[in-house]
């Protein structure tokens, strides 16, 4: 037997309650007309019906739009620095999509490389990812072009597949196996269940119709780095806002700023974006003042520089940047129109 399990959708509330005893649970949640992974209220499992993917990727849970790095105060002896106490708890993200789980693996690399980033990594530690495959990908999704799929379980601990009335559950990691082993109320999956799951996966794979060709994309981009005409054309309609980068599950640029309120100081880190002209502005000059240079930076960082450094494209094909863009700037069109190497 494969070791796969089955749970009826009706019992998801019970399952989460069980896990809630050990973990803080994050589930797809609505927050004023927008969506993100947020603490489960202990009851609502309605997300099973409405959830396709959250507006904010789960990077928000580990690398929030803003966070306190430390506080500082001054007294007679001088300055004192205090670290915010981080509440250490095990957490579990339920129903994370493969693209967002893959994105976390990319962020892990970036935040672990060289100097370790204590804020991201401490949140990331002791987090179990329970994946939920996509049976209804958006028309903006293109994960299958990036070596992934709507059911890619590479970076989750346990994978759920919607097979109708029930979820088909696969253990992926040791931690996942351990959790499944001590979870009550699951039944063993049968050959029929397995066949159902395979069918769902295959059907869903074929629903991802947006394609890009990433073969040699790093080389192609390197070759066209100085092709100003191309980049000007590609960037023409971009309005240089931060939507695509902020909501990208793999973008991790940040800013650091101090705040002083009645002698109580705080140093914050907050999201920043290479789309903003001020991002690289220096007193004497700005190397990326022109829009085409900034668009080039975004595309090349994901598809050329990051692969050069870490051997992986920093894009998981979640499609948020296309879906949420106010002017329908479409990275797949940009990638597809990169000139071939002559």
């Amino acid at each position: 037997m494969s070791g796969s399990k089955i749970i009826n959708k009706k019992d998801i509330g019970k399952l989460l309650s069980q896990w809630n005893e050990e973990f803080v649970i994050l589930v797809p949640s609505k927050e004023g007309d927008t969506t993100k992974m947020a603490k489960w209220d202990g009851k609502d499992t309605g997300f099973i019906d409405w959830y396709r993917n959250t507006v904010q990727a789960s990077k928000t849970n580990f690398f929030p739009p803003m966070e306190e790095m430390f506080s500082f105060q001054k007294d007679k002896e001088g300055y004192h620095i205090g670290l915010a106490s981080s509440d250490k708890h095990k957490q579990l993200i339920f129903a994370i999509r493969p693209c967002d789980a893959n994105a976390l693996a990319i962020l892990d690399v970036a935040f672990k490389d060289g100097y370790e980033d204590p804020y991201y990594l401490s949140r990331r530690k002791d987090t179990l990812l329970i994946g939920l495959g996509c049976i209804n990908p958006y028309d903006s999704c293109f994960c299958t072009s990036l070596g992934s799929s709507p059911f890619d379980s590479t970076n989750v601990d346990i994978m759920f597949t919607d097979i109708g009335e029930e979820f088909f559950i696969e253990e992926v990691t040791e931690a996942g196996k351990e959790l499944v082993a001590k979870t009550e109320g699951l039944r063993e999956a049968s050959k029929v269940d397995e066949a159902k799951a395979s069918k769902v996966k295959e059907a869903s794979y074929n629903k991802v119709t947006r394609k890009i060709d990433t073969r040699d994309i790093d080389k192609k981009l390197l070759a066209c780095f100085e092709n100003k005409d191309y980049w000007e054309k590609v960037s023409a309609k971009c309005i240089s806002c931060g939507i695509c980068t902020f909501l990208c599950p793999t973008c991790y640029c940040f800013d650091i700023n101090d705040e002083l309120v009645r002698k109580q100081g705080t140093r914050f880190r907050s999201w920043d974006s290479c789309a903003f002209p001020i991002y690289t502005e220096m007193p004497v000059e700005n190397p990326r003042l022109e829009k085409w240079r900034r668009v080039r930076q975004k595309v090349c960082h994901k598809f050329e520089f990051f692969p050069m450094n870490f051997g992986v494209v920093a894009c998981t094909g979640c499609g948020r940047c296309i879906r949420l863009c106010g002017v329908n700037w479409d990275i797949t069109q940009a990638i597809e129109s990169v000139p071939a190497i002559i």
Binding site: A110, Y252, F254, D255, F305
Partner: peptide, 19 residues
């Protein structure tokens, strides 16, 4: 080289040129 830097440790992204 002088670039705009914030974090100093290759994370925040500003001073990225090429890889």
């Amino acid at each position: 080289l002088e670039k705009r830097m914030k974090c100093g440790i290759g994370k925040c992204g500003r001073c990225n040129i090429g890889n």
